[in-house]
Simulated scan of single mutants.
Amino acid sequence: MKNLFSPFSLQKIMMASLLVVSSLLQAQNPKGKLFIIGGGNRSDDLMKQVLATAELNKKDYIVVLPMSSEEPDSAFIFFKTQMIKLTSNPIVMLNFTAATAQNKVLTDSVQKAKLIFISGGDQTRFMAVVNNTPVKTAIQKAYENGSTISGTSAGAAVMSEKMITGNQKLQKEYSGTFDNIRYDNLETSEGLGLLKTAVIDQHFLKRNRYNRLLSALVEFPDLTGIGIDESTAIIVRNNQIEVAGESEVIVVRNPKGVSKSKKNNLISIEKLEMSIYTAGQKFNIK
């Protein structure tokens, strides 16, 4: 039987395969970093760490995405007022709508930003604007190519692939915390997907959100649950995480012996790993 492929065509196929593998590896090991803040007050020292993590050059600029906020202009002004004391790099706001989310000039500006900051507010409001649009793709590509993506509160929640919305399926009215741990009660939706193996909760100790994060772990036992307190952050470099700021980060993972009660969807967990970290300490995720 004759060889169906010439040496030249085989070489092209091998090169194409290598490009696909290279692209997949880049997506799995992004060059960028995440600086995820749990909400609350952001000290100058904490924001200096954001800038140091981003490693801005003179020609680099910062993009603020305020779509989580009910008052995007105020969110931007608050951020810029603090940051102009700390850096001379340009700071611009891109407040996308359903229409402008398709604008290639604007989305290219997002992708080329060395630091992207996502404000607090409502994470579902943010994702309603960016999901399935070039904006989301631009954020992901910026991260893959070496940019730092930062966010606070709602801007923290959107970082993970499985995003906690804050709502309960079994309770119609919104509650800042969950009053118990029940199976199939936690509402999640699609986030930015920058963190594939962890789920983020914010304002964690301040608002006593243990039940909510444990509910997430019951739903997604293979993920690492990370609860970030106010004025505190995690810096993500691929699979290694470093804590920064004034309070603590709670990490829960590897639930064993999970079972569901027939009454009220209550659940039990026989074993669970839990760790508490403070500024400067590091841990790994899968």
Rank of each mutant, 00 (worst) to 15 (best):
Gly121Arg: 00
Ser231Arg: 15
Gln28Asn: 14
Phe117Cys: 08
Asn57Pro: 08
Ala156Thr: 06
Ala279Thr: 11
Phe178Ile: 00
Glu242Met: 08
Arg237Met: 07
Leu25Thr: 11
Thr124Gln: 11
Leu94Gly: 11
Gly40Ile: 00
Met1His: 15
Ser9Ile: 10
Asn89Gln: 09
Ala279Arg: 15
Asn3Gln: 15
Glu55Val: 01
Val105His: 12
Lys112Val: 00
Val50Tyr: 06
Ser261Lys: 15
Asn41Asp: 02
Phe78Trp: 10
Gln49Pro: 09
Ser43Tyr: 02
Gly280Glu: 12
Ile267Met: 02
Ile164Pro: 00
Lys169Pro: 02
Gly40Gln: 02
Met159Asp: 03
Asn185Pro: 08
Phe204Ala: 02
Gln26Thr: 07
Glu71Trp: 07
Ala142Gln: 11
Asp60Tyr: 02
Val129Thr: 10
Gly225Leu: 04
Leu34Met: 13
Gln28Trp: 04
Ile269Val: 12
Ser261Tyr: 04
Phe8Gly: 14
Tyr143Ile: 01
Ser69Gly: 01
Ile84Leu: 08
Ala27Lys: 15
Gly227Trp: 01
Ser247Lys: 15
Ser268Met: 12
Ile37Asp: 09
Met127His: 02
Val218Glu: 05
Gly191Pro: 07
Gln171Cys: 06
Val236Ile: 07
Asp44Trp: 01
Pro221Phe: 05
Glu187Gly: 04
Val236Asp: 13
Leu106Ile: 08
Leu195Arg: 14
Lys271Tyr: 04
Ile250Leu: 12
Thr97Ala: 10
Lys162Thr: 03
Arg209Cys: 08
Tyr277Arg: 12
Lys256Gly: 11
Leu34Ala: 09
Ala156Asn: 03
Ser69His: 04
Ile13Pro: 09
Gln202Leu: 00
Gly166Ile: 01
Ile276Lys: 14
Gly227His: 10
Met14Leu: 13
Ile200Tyr: 00
Lys58Tyr: 11
Ile118Gln: 00
Gly40His: 03
Asn41Ser: 06
Leu195Ala: 04
Asn185Ile: 01
Ile36Pro: 13
Leu266Gly: 12
Ala156Phe: 03
Gln82Glu: 03
Leu18Tyr: 13
Ser109Gly: 08
Leu65Ser: 08
Met127Thr: 00
Ser150Trp: 04
Thr152Val: 02
Asp122Trp: 00
Lys33Ser: 12
Thr177Ser: 11
